[in-house]
Nucleic acid binder design. Structure first.
Lengths: 200, 200
DNA sequence: TTAATAAAATACCGATCGGTATATTTTAGT
DNA sequence: ACTAAAATATACCGATCGGTATTTTATTAA
């Protein structure tokens, strides 16, 4: 049994997959153990046999949610070559977040940050690291573009990363609460202009 | 007893004032009735004598939190005359939100929206209306500036309102989760430039 | 195939949840 | 000062919370 996953490892993964969307939608405090048994079809005993407590499931679920988004974005980025086009992937993806199943409960970073910032240090820390990772990878895309001569030499990568993330997260919040993507579209149009303005 | 408030009305107000920060910090699901008795020093009986249920306290608390921020902003705005200066009040206020006591748990609209969008229709509705009110008043400030010849004629008030709100909410989320205002400062500097760029 | 082991289900725990009925105290008009 | 009414506190309710000990079932290596 070297290569294949053990039963426990498979179950653990199954629990994470099934409960991750629940945590993203209802939040940590709003999700009960009963919600987890419902989402998985398993019993409490099985869940507590694979996880120490609710915290551990929630932390694993956050990683899963974040990785799902990250992998989707990464695939789109690797499908393009030019740095400007790569940056344009973000508005392109987030403008249709209401129809992407794994993004329908909103951005995991946004949801987790606003709930956990004052209440749950471990989750807060995870969200903070995920945010830092995201911003660093945007900065690196911009630096790459400057090296390749595709992006203006005087561009401030950190500034652009901060503004890009702010506009995306702020407009997702708005779209979710009013339950339509009208203003999100406007914000993503604006963000695309900012990005196209970086062109060398 | 015509003019003065009845005991019940005063107690009701007192409960709202004391519990509003708790709801803003811990969220609806994360706040228990025990939290409310702790924050007020009152008993369950007293709270349920003045409110039908937890929902009613939470909804009143949201209004209180939103009005607190709104009144503070309004006072700053009325202290200025020029439309550009009035718009600059927003970055000026939010860049120091970590030291304004009533803003330390974050923006009530942001906190309530991200928690309630998928779970609590009444709270979601309140947050949506508060957001609409905010954006409308920004739009009106811009329109006023155009009439007064202080803001460029070709300015799109709706677009500026959407971007202003997005940048503020998105950067507040970031500042809260990483627990420092470094990037918030950068975002507010950028927002100030956008506003100054509207000058006729 | 079997026996040891691992995993999942069942049954249960005390604590806390939101909420209520009732008793006690405060308030407020006379 | 007295009393009726209003407001608050006490005591309690069933349900659900997160979590665990134990039993049953499934897995896995020999």
């Amino acid at each position: 049994m070297s290569i294949e996953l053990s039963k426990a490892e498979r179950t653990r993964q199954y629990i994470i997959e099934k409960t991750a969307p629940v945590f993203n939608e209802k939040g940590y405090a709003g999700t009960s153990i009963h919600d987890l048994t419902e989402a998985t079809g398993l019993t409490k005993g099985s869940i507590y046999g694979n996880f120490e407590n609710k915290d551990e499931v929630a932390l694993a679920a956050f990683d899963y949610n974040f990785n799902t988004v990250t992998n989707y974005i990464k695939a789109q980025i690797l499908a393009t070559e030019n740095s400007i086009e790569r940056l344009l992937v973000y508005p392109k993806v987030y403008r249709k977040f209401l129809i992407l199943p794994f993004l329908q409960p909103g951005c995991p970073i946004l949801n987790t940050s606003t709930e956990a910032d004052d209440t749950h240090p471990k989750l807060r820390e995870k969200a903070a690291k995920a945010l830092a990772f995201w911003k660093t990878s945007i900065e690196n895309q911009i630096k790459r573009g400057m090296v390749r001569g595709e992006i203006k030499k005087n561009t401030n990568p950190t500034l652009i990363a901060i503004i890009l993330v702010s506009i995306i997260e702020g407009s997702i919040m708005q779209a979710k609460v009013v339950q339509n993507a009208k203003d999100l579209k406007v914000a993503m149009d604006y963000l695309e202009k900012i990005i196209l303005d970086l062109k060398a």
